[in-house]
C-alpha cells in the first residue's frame, strides 16, 4: 500500500501540481485586467509612470513571465508563499486563518452526509416500493434539485428568524467553544450537506438494490444467515464501492459549495477568500489557493482508492 501511495503522490500528484501551477500562473496573467488596478483602483490611470514602475518592480511584475514563475515556484518550495497583492498580508497567514474554518465546515458536512446517507439508502433499498422508500426518494430528489443557497435561506428563516434558536450567521471554532460551534455550524453544515447527502442516498440505494439481487446474497439467505448479517456483511460491503467513489468526488463539490454557504452564513473561510482573491486579481493568493484545492481533491481521491483495498480484498495496487 505504501508504495502505491508514494507512487500516486510522486508520479501523479507532483506532476499534476507542477502543470497546474504553470497553468494557473499563465492564465491569471493572460486574462484581461491589471493587478495594479486591483491594488490601487482606478487611480492607476493617474499613477505617474515612475511610481508604476516602482510598484511593478516591488511586486516582481516587471520581469518576464518565465522569471516570475521561477521566482514564485522557488519561493514556494522554500516556504515563502509571498504576500497578498491587495492586503499586503503574507499569503500563508491569509490562508492559514481561513483553512481551519473551511475544514471544519466541509468535513462536518461530509461526515454528516455520509453517515446519514448510507443508512438511509440501505433502508430505502430494503423497503423498495413501500411508502418509506417513496419518501426517501422524494427527499433525495428534492435534495439534489434544491440549490443549497435556497435551502440555507429557508433554514435561516425557520430556525433563526422564526424560532430564534440558532444564529443567522457567523462562525465559532470548536477549539474556542464547542457548544457555540455546533450552534453556529448547524445550519451551514446542513445546507452544505443536503445535496451531497441526497446524491449518496440515491447512489447507496441503487447499489444496494443491485447487490441484493446477486446470487451470493440469495446464497447467504439460504444458508440461514441473519438478515442483518447478510445486509451488513455481504450486501453493504459490496455496495459501498461505488458509494465510496462518489463520496470521494463529493469532497470537491463540498469545497465548491463552501463559496456559497460561507457567503450566505458569513463564515470567514477559504471559499470567500478565493472569490475575493479572484475578483481582486490577487495573483499571489489565487495561485496558492488553487494549488491547495487541487491537493485537497487529490488527497480525497487517494483516500477513496486506499479505502477500496479495505473494502474489496480483490483489489491490489
Amino acid at each position: 500500500m505504501l508504495p502505491f501511495i508514494l507512487r500516486r503522490l510522486l508520479v501523479e500528484t507532483v506532476p499534476l501540481l507542477f502543470f497546474l501551477s504553470i497553468f494557473v500562473f499563465v492564465v491569471l496573467r493572460v486574462l484581461p485586467g491589471d493587478p495594479l488596478r486591483a491594488i490601487i483602483g482606478d487611480e492607476i490611470t493617474t499613477l505617474p509612470a515612475a511610481d508604476r514602475l516602482v510598484l511593478m518592480h516591488d511586486l516582481g511584475l516587471d520581469k518576464s513571465l518565465f522569471l516570475q514563475y521561477v521566482d514564485w515556484a522557488g519561493n514556494l518550495l522554500t516556504g515563502d508563499w509571498g504576500r497578498s497583492f491587495v492586503s499586503s498580508k503574507p499569503v500563508s497567514e491569509a490562508i492559514g486563518e481561513r483553512v481551519p474554518v473551511t475544514l471544519q465546515l466541509s468535513s462536518l458536512a461530509w461526515i454528516l452526509s455520509v453517515s446519514l446517507a448510507i443508512p438511509i439508502g440501505v433502508f430505502s433499498a430494503l423497503r423498495r416500493n413501500t411508502w418509506a422508500d417513496a419518501a426517501v426518494n422524494v427527499f433525495a430528489l428534492m435534495g439534489v434539485a434544491t440549490p443549497n443557497f435556497l435551502f440555507g435561506m429557508l433554514l435561516i428563516l425557520v430556525f433563526a428568524v422564526s424560532l430564534g434558536i440558532l444564529p443567522t450567521n457567523g462562525f465559532v471554532s470548536f477549539a474556542e467553544d464547542p457548544v457555540q460551534a455546533v450552534r453556529y455550524l448547524a445550519m451551514p453544515v446542513l445546507a452544505l450537506a443536503t445535496g451531497t447527502m441526497a446524491s449518496l442516498v440515491r447512489q447507496t440505494r441503487s447499489a444496494m438494490l443491485e447487490v441484493m439481487n446477486e446470487d451470493y446474497i440469495r446464497t447467504a439467505h439460504s444458508k440461514g444467515l441473519a438478515p442483518r448479517h447478510v445486509v451488513i456483511r455481504h450486501a453493504l460491503k459490496n455496495a459501498l464501492l461505488p458509494v465510496v467513489t462518489v463520496a470521494g468526488l463529493q469532497v470537491g463539490n463540498l469545497l465548491s459549495g463552501t463559496v456559497i454557504i460561507e457567503t450566505m452564513f458569513s463564515i470567514p473561510g477559504m471559499g470567500r477568500l478565493t472569490v475575493n482573491a479572484i475578483y481582486g486579481q490577487d495573483y499571489a493568493l489565487v495561485q496558492i489557493l488553487v494549488l491547495i484545492l487541487a491537493v485537497a481533491h487529490v488527497l480525497a481521491n487517494l483516500a477513496a482508492d486506499v479505502l477500496y483495498v479495505r473494502l474489496d480484498p480483490r483489489i491490489h495496487y
Partner: peptide, 18 residues
C-alpha cells in the same frame, strides 16, 4: 461591525435581533 455580505442574511440578522 459585523460583515454580512448577503443582503437576505443581513436582513434576517436584523429581524432576529442579532
Amino acid at each position: 461591525w459585523k460583515i454580512i455580505i448577503q443582503s437576505e442574511t443581513r436582513a434576517a440578522a436584523l429581524r432576529a435581533k442579532e
